[in-house]
Design a protein around this nucleic acid. Sequence first.
DNA 1: TATTGTTATACTCTATAACTATA
DNA 2: TATAGTTATAGAGTATAACAATA
Lengths: 175, 175
Amino acid sequence: MAEQAQYEELIRQFSAFGAVKREMGRLLPSGCPSGAAAVLTILDRHGDMRLSKLAELLAVDMSVTSRQVAHVVDRGWIERCPDPVDKRSRILRLTPAGREQMDELTRRTTRMLAERLSDWRDDEIAELTRLMARLRASFDDCRSTPTTPTTPTRPPTEPALEQSTRRPATPAITT
Amino acid sequence: MAEQAQYEELIRQFSAFGAVKREMGRLLPSGCPSGAAAVLTILDRHGDMRLSKLAELLAVDMSVTSRQVAHVVDRGWIERCPDPVDKRSRILRLTPAGREQMDELTRRTTRMLAERLSDWRDDEIAELTRLMARLRASFDDCRSTPTTPTTPTRPPTEPALEQSTRRPATPAITT
DNA sequence: TATTGTTATACTCTATAACTATA
DNA sequence: TATAGTTATAGAGTATAACAATA
């Protein structure tokens, strides 16, 4: 159990992180705002899924996700396929153009990080990554939201926890 | 120098942090949106300053800060005092009511953190805090972006910018 | 009746540009 | 002329509520 002052200091860092987030947001390609980037990253990371699942992973209301998805569909980066088991919903899937866009996002963001964190050691970066993942998980666990199964067609390198009832700890890009 | 994959994973965690931020945002008192909270937090942390300095610390455009400050002034949480050495600018200062609001913010956020991070060890929280502070510093250092040719590159320990602003005790950028 | 998703409305955050007052 | 700040405008993120179609 930590001290009050320790929490206060951590909160200040949370607030300060907003500046980092804004810096990252400034290098997004035009036509691909942060919401679109987040959608692409989650689909790339976790595979095809329905809108409700995507909203859950983003931790935003479904109405928000609905409009963001519509935007990304307009750009041709994802497509909405019929859900064979539930005619109310559709399955969201990255298109080849969406993967290209995703690759461009990755190029830009990793280049910026490589520049900004050039004096960080590998293990420091790994530790920050680990702790932020755990942070997200700690916040995630307190939300109780039942979910329907999805079809993670492309579980990436990390040992993703790709079942349905609990949320994985790693979604999207920048913001 | 880190691997590409390591940067990619870190970026995913940055994005995932958006969910944490949104969760925290949901417990803000009504009438105190995140922008106002950020203004209060910085003034509480770094002491009185002028608008341009505040905008710099927030890493947003001065026009943004101007409106957020106006909002906070309307609520009576900060006041704008005349700057004795430059009639164009005013010095921003927390009012007693502002400190109370800041205390309420601290109460709410620390309570949430204590709840969510109940199974974290002290040293883990401290390490996350330290790494996030360093992250912010790493981004701060190279803020001479191509879009702002007029911006003088910030010297490591900011000098002559504060002669009119009654410099606070705390260094500007947390380290 | 409950759930999935969409749309309408409102509010906030953010940047750019035009403007003023002062330096 | 240059700088500090304000205001207008526009675009994006977000939540709530009302709604449609399906379960």
